[in-house]
Amino acid sequence: MGHLSTYDFTFDADVFKRLALSDSGFVFDPVTGKSYTVNDTGIWLIKQLQKNPNLDALHSQILREFEGEATVIERNVMEFLEQIRQYVL
């Protein structure tokens, strides 16, 4: 079990589902009116969380999808989720 799956990240799955996500990386929240920009990896991560807002599933999916050292990937993902917590949730 990696760090990501034990990471304390609670959120309302509906928040991810409602986000309007463009392929350009423009993210619009129709409830708060806030907008953000994310890179290609961010787009991929938000899409995964929209499909299945489960960190265990996200963890497995990341390890299948990306090459690199697992701990580094997990740290980057955790940083991204922290930013999401700060801005979106």
């Binding site: 129709p30 409830v31 708060t32 009116g33 806030k34 907008s35």
Partner: peptide, 21 residues
């Protein structure tokens, strides 16, 4: 419904976006 995205020094909306909450 509208969220203010920018305001004047009087706090009046200078820019905004339609939302649904």
């Amino acid at each position: 419904m509208m969220r203010k995205r920018a305001v004047t020094d009087k706090g009046k909306a200078w820019a905004g976006v339609t939302i649904h909450d």
